[in-house]
Each structure stands twice: as structure tokens, then as C-alpha cells.
Amino acid sequence: MRHPWRSGMLLLLVGTLVFLGILLFSGGSPAGTPAGGVRTREFTIHARQFAYTPPRIRVRQGERVVLRVISDDVVHGLYVDGYGINSKIFPGRETVISFVADRPGKIRYRCSVICGNLHPFMIGEVVVGPNYTLWGALALTALAAAGTVVVLWRRESSAGDQNEEGDDGTA
């Protein structure tokens, strides 16, 4: 007979794989693209040690994001995770960076020019909505928690009904 715990783990594994699959293939089909083409959203970003301002911007999936970036102190950089974009940002000079936010979820961009001690942690965020990545992960968390509880209960039922007294409680 198949053990309930194994069934639960299998269920969780399948759920995780489905989630990761959705994540992987969710790009390339922009939702809400206007009939006239890709909608453009422009933002002015100020870079200074060790943050970008505003720290987080929100766009819709499929929109073209244009970042006009100016450094307020030293030379910084801007590397967009997953998009292969890497530019230098000079003080007082605007650098324009553009990409289509074709994947839902959080896109981090980070400083690519060593600018001081906290340089590795100089990070900005573009949140592409609807954030299916987060909602999917949260749903999976609820499913994993509830599923684990049910599996543990069922396991105890099948193993402990006959001899509840003898159960030592180990997982």
C-alpha cells in the first residue's frame, strides 16, 4: 500500500513543478497589450549610495519600461536581472534604459559599478503585475501547509487506529 506521506510529498512535488512551469512559460504572452502596440511607462530613477529612488516601481505585464536614470553622487551601474541590460550611470547625466516587462513578478536591477561598501546590496525593483509569481507561490504555500497537515493526520489514522497507545509520536 502506498504510504500517505509519500503521496503528499508527490502531490507537493507535482504542485511545485506546475508552479515552476507556469513561471518559466509565463513570458512572451503579454496581457493587456493595447491594440496600438506596446504601452510605454517612463520613470525617472535617482541613484545614490546605496539605493535607487523610487525603490520600487509597478508596471503591467507587456508594458515597455523606460528608466531615465541619473546618479546623484558617484558613478553607479544598472544591471537588469534576466534581461542582459548593463549600463553605467554618471552623476548629473541621464542614462535611458528600456525593456519590455514580458514576465510577471519581481524584476530586480542592481548596481554593476563598485560604488562603496554596500554596493552589492544596491538593488531596485520593478514589480510586473499581475504578480502571478507571488500569488502562485503563496497559494502553493497554503496548499503545502494544508496538504502536509492532512497527510500527517491521515497517516496517524491509518497507522494509529489500531494501536494509538503505542504511537511514539515521531514523524
Binding site: 507537493l12 511545485t16 515552476l20 513561471l23 534576466g82 524584476i107 507561490a137 502553493l140 504555500t141 502536509t148
Partner: peptide
């Protein structure tokens, strides 16, 4: 770095299920 969610989500979910267990 863009693949981090693919690592973080399974790791955290595994941690959660083991913690509940």
C-alpha cells in the same frame, strides 16, 4: 539571478513541510 525564484520557492516549501512534520 533571474532564476532565484526557481530555487527559493522549492527550498522554502520544503522547509515548511519539514517544519510542519
Amino acid at each position: 539571478p533571474h532564476l532565484l525564484p526557481y530555487i527559493q520557492v522549492p527550498v522554502l516549501l520544503l522547509g515548511l513541510t519539514l517544519s510542519i512534520r
